[in-house]
């Protein structure tokens, strides 16, 4: 797999405040990479640095093989950015907005009208195409902004809090559209958000940012495993467990904790390889096993644990 984004020791300060602090990470081509962090963590600043619209104070970055600082214009031709505020020209119509940005991104005149129409259609703006965008609802503006970021068929997409401030329905539409366009054509997506459900649904890997520092990067599942010692396994039983089950389970090498609540049994093991031994021990002790589910840590658990640790240190 090739690398879409790579940074090393990236730093950006504003006065005495360090917005992006010694940031090093990479995102593979074709993946959806989520950057999670509270307001002021440095997400927007990072997007600006990665697109060369802001200068870094130290470190280096490569996006699609370009150095954003020196090859910004070439990079921006292949990159689409959905900014935090919709950045729609409210005095222009939806069509004029798309046409304008398409021209600036160098879409050939011959393709532009067709592409504009297709996007307006797909984003449900067709019947309002020639109305001024100023009269649009927030959700429509955001969909128009989304269409704008796609007009030049970019190889990499940056979404900066795409659903912030939208009502659930509009947010859902935007998330659906992002899901639809993310997978397509091996396009890389860099998604900044503090909406963890959205990140959980869309992202292959996430980075967790706090005060400009990356606290962790990885697949949500891997992050969970690294953060907590051991792995919890939920074992569903058809009947209350036989007496002595907990003692039998604690006898398994690698099992560290057992909880029994009615017909619900939970066992903490060192790692996944211990699970088969736990299952046979339980069966041998007479437990009627219905299902076995290794417990995944939700992105919520991961996020809040990391943020709390960072604040504490």
């Amino acid at each position: 797999m090739s690398v879409a984004i790579e940074t090393e020791g990236l730093v950006r300060r504003f006065g005495t405040r360090t917005a992006v602090n010694e940031l090093s990470f990479r995102a593979e081509a074709g993946e959806v990479f989520g950057l999670l962090g509270p307001n002021g963590a440095g997400k927007t600043t990072l997007v600006r640095l990665l697109n060369g619209v802001l200068k870094a104070d130290a470190g280096r970055a490569h996006v699609l093989g370009c150095d954003p600082q020196t090859q910004g214009d070439a990079l921006r031709r292949r990159s689409g950015v959905l900014t935090e505020t919709p950045s729609i020209y409210e005095r222009l119509t939806a069509r004029q907005n798309l046409h304008f940005f398409g021209t600036l991104y160098g879409v050939p005149e011959a393709d532009l009208a067709r592409r504009t129409d297709a996007l307006l259609e797909q984003f449900g703006l067709h019947d309002r195409a020639d109305d001024r965008a100023g009269g649009f609802s927030k959700g429509m503006k955001q969909r128009l902004a989304l269409a704008r970021t796609l007009i030049h068929q970019p190889d990499i997409l940056f979404f900066d809090e795409p659903t912030a401030g939208l009502d659930p329905e509009a947010a859902q539409q935007v998330t659906d559209l992002i899901a639809q366009y993310s997978g397509a054509d091996g396009r890389t997506v860099f998604l900044c958000t503090h909406n963890l459900d959205e990140a959980g649904r869309l992202c292959d890997r996430v980075g967790i940012l706090n005060h400009g520092r990356l606290l962790a990067v990885g697949k949500p599942d891997d992050l969970g495993r690294n953060l907590w010692d051991g792995q919890w396994v939920d074992i569903g039983l058809t009947a209350p467990p036989p007496a002595g089950l907990d003692a039998a389970l604690m006898g398994v090498a690698g099992a560290t904790q057992v909880q029994i609540k009615g017909a619900a049994l939970a066992v903490q093991v060192r790692d996944e390889s211990v699970i088969p031994a736990v299952v046979s021990a339980a069966a041998a002790a007479g437990a009627q096993i219905l299902r076995v589910t290794p417990r995944a840590h939700s992105l919520h658990d991961i996020y809040f644990k990391l943020q709390a640790e960072a604040e504490a240190s």
Binding site: N51, V53, D73, A74, R76, R77, S79, V81, T83, T85, S87, I88, Y89, E90, F101, L104, Y105, G106, A145, R148
Partner: peptide
């Protein structure tokens, strides 16, 4: 003021 400058700066226009 209308916060449209940012999107403009993200385009390849020099």
């Amino acid at each position: 003021e209308r916060k449209t400058m940012e999107a403009l700066l993200y385009t390849p226009a020099t």
